[in-house]
Design a protein around this nucleic acid. Structure first.
Length: 273
DNA sequence: ATCGCCTCCTGCGCGC
DNA sequence: TGCGCGCAGGAGGCGA
């Protein structure tokens, strides 16, 4: 579920509630996430003040004077801002309670997410330092995308989903950006022309920006910090539409699997080359 | 270095 | 109604 737009939507939703607020308590109900939540995290955060809530790739960084919590939503995670007295439900693994009485409540049925601590500069953390540029900032350019495809035999779809090339492009938005660019997902990355790269770069940025404006994409269970769904699902042009007509040329959209991930494209608008 | 496969989990929808 | 199966938005780690 959470690709970059969903993570940014979540970050924006929680920031005004917790920035400059003091942590009253961190409650861990189940520490078995992708990596175990450190046992010392509650004592590290107690009575400390949140200095910033930022994002790098799909990681939300909750920053304190003495370190940073790295939160990842995995495939099924979500964070809501709630009244801390509200009873916890199934899969509500973590509450970050602030002195105002509000809490961040982390729910993650599949437990692929994480809550990690670093007392170093978070940019130097192993999970962060190798990440590619941010698609919503100038750091990500058509030139960088083009150069990254040279001598790469993997498919262009696989390549743009690689967070070491560019962060934030998951399966849904990879399908959408390739459709908008008229590029077949199976094309070998090294075959990409400069013109292809320019188009694809522009459309990756476009689709992510649009999705953020809509509050992300809700397919099954994504919810924003206030509990509302995202509204980008209704704008998806190919993802989830296999067998239906292409919105541009009415050709039947085809579904294949690339690296075991569902891939949908228009055989006519995205010609094989 | 690069590639593709495997894996961590739960929930849901489907066909029978 | 119940069961088994396949599939799901991520991404690190591994062997080849």
């Amino acid at each position: 579920m959470p690709e970059l737009p969903e993570v940014e939507t979540t970050r924006k939703g929680i920031e005004p509630h917790i920035n400059n607020q003091q942590v009253k308590e961190l409650i861990i109900r189940d520490k078995r996430l992708r990596w175990p939540i450190p046992d010392e995290l509650p004592s590290l955060l107690k009575n400390k003040t949140i200095k910033a809530v930022t994002r790098r790739g799909k990681y939300i960084l909750i920053q304190f004077e003495h370190g940073t919590v790295l939160v990842h939503l995995g495939m099924s995670g979500s964070i809501r801002v709630i009244d801390s007295k509200l009873e916890a439900k199934k899969h509500d693994h973590v509450d970050l309670i602030i002195t105002s009485g509000k809490a961040l409540r982390f729910n993650d049925p599949r437990r692929f997410g994480c809550w990690l601590w670093t007392d170093q500069d978070p940019v130097q953390h192993d999970l962060i330092k190798k990440l590619g540029p941010e698609p919503l900032l100038e750091h990500f350019t058509a030139e960088h995308l083009y150069l990254s495809t040279r001598k790469r035999k993997t498919s262009i779809k696989q390549l743009i989903m690689d967070s070491h090339i560019v962060v934030g492009v998951g399966n849904i938005y990879a399908n959408e950006a390739l459709f908008l660019s008229g590029i077949r997902p199976t094309m070998k990355a090294e075959k990409l022309t400069k013109a292809n790269a320019a188009k694809l770069h522009a459309n990756i940025c476009l689709v992510l920006e649009k999705a953020i404006k809509q509050g992300g994409t809700t397919l099954n269970d994504f919810q924003q910090a206030d509990g509302q769904p995202g509204y980008f699902a209704q704008e998806l042009l190919v993802y989830g539409r296999a067998g239906q007509e292409c919105v541009v040329c009415t050709t039947e959209l085809k579904e294949i699997r690339i690296n075991n991930r569902s891939t949908v494209y228009c055989p006519k608008c995205q010609p094989a080359k």
